[in-house]
């Protein structure tokens, strides 16, 4: 059983297994379930993700507050009718990430990866790469196990909660997970996956959690968009042989410590950042009424 990325990579290399397989073996060991059950469960998570993406891209989605919905479709239309600046693979991934988060904000069904607020990045990257890499369903399931393996290390050694560690812990973690899994799917090595995660998470260190009106909508949907694009860039850097100067486990530890230093106002309390702007405050008033009071939750 691995507790660090270093151990995860070592296990994969010593047994000559892909990272996804190490995660599957660990799951069998800790839960006592058999392989078929575990694969079946991940397959059903994949189906949920796929449905959310399709809903967000093809249905009219609007949240209760009206703060989010419809942007994934706008982007899809733009990709189909324009020569975009950043290219179709990146924007396809971005539109699918946003689709997921818009469905989430509108009380649709999603699969938290690792949380609901950051649920767009991993499926966005996975389904964004699908037309290019033509993965089999088994390879797509493997992608989720690899992403899960890296998220598992982050969750147990740092945090995946915005209230505890800011958005770096949610979208930052999701971006690292997606980058590492994209490397494996593209045929990269276990070390390259670790570098992709380190680069991706390292670039999002310090990202605060500042949801407007306290809702998982703005800027969350767009943070997932940027997460998906960053994940692809980090994966490409790692596949090019570029290494993170700081090893992955140390980046994860840095994320944890940055989260500890982060003031409460910047950790999901909606008391700082974009939430505490003139427009952010006005939106909160509009949604919750003028009696809406500031709150400082105790940790």
């Amino acid at each position: 059983m691995f507790q660090t990325v270093e151990e995860l990579v070592k296990e994969a290399n010593s047994q000559n297994l892909p990272l996804s397989e190490v995660m599957i073996q660990t799951e069998i060991e800790t839960t006592g379930k058999n392989r078929a059950e575990i694969i079946e469960k991940m397959s059903s998570q994949l189906t949920v993700m796929e449905k959310a993406v399709q809903r967000g891209l093809h249905e009219e989605i609007k949240s209760r507050s009206g703060l989010s919905g419809g942007d994934a479709r706008l982007l899809k239309h733009y990709i189909e009718h324009n020569e975009s600046l950043s290219g179709s693979v990146v924007l396809d991934a971005v539109s699918k990430a946003m689709a997921t988060n818009e469905v989430n904000a509108a009380m649709g069904t999603i699969c938290a990866t690792p949380t609901a607020g950051s649920a767009g990045v991993v499926p966005g990257v996975l389904f964004g790469l699908q037309p290019k890499l033509n993965p089999t369903r088994d390879q797509m399931i493997a992608f989720l196990f690899t992403a899960g393996a890296f998220g598992f290390v982050v969750a147990n050694n740092a945090s995946i909660s915005g209230a505890a560690g800011g958005c770096q812990a949610e979208v930052g973690s999701a971006t690292g997970m997606a980058a590492a899994a994209a490397v494996e799917m593209a045929g990269g090595t276990a070390e390259q996956s670790a570098h992709a995660m380190a680069i991706a998470l390292g670039n999002l260190l310090g990202l605060i959690c500042d949801p407007v009106a306290g809702l998982v909508e703005a800027p969350c949907v767009k943070r997932n968009a940027i997460g998906a694009s960053s994940a692809l860039v980090a994966a490409d850097l790692a596949l090019a042989g570029i290494k993170s100067v700081i090893p992955c486990d140390e980046v994860i530890d840095a994320m944890y410590r940055v989260g500890r230093m982060m003031p409460t106002a910047l950790r999901e309390t909606a008391l700082g950042g974009l939430a505490d702007t003139k427009t952010g405050r006005a939106l909160k008033e509009r949604i919750f009424g003028i009696n809406a009071k500031r709150s400082v939750p105790k940790e």
Binding site: M42, G117, A155, I160, M177
Partner: peptide, 16 residues
Amino acid sequence: RSVFDIIGPVMVGPSS
């Protein structure tokens, strides 16, 4: 404890 704590839960949004 489980990979499905990370890739999961499947849920109705918006907040875990």
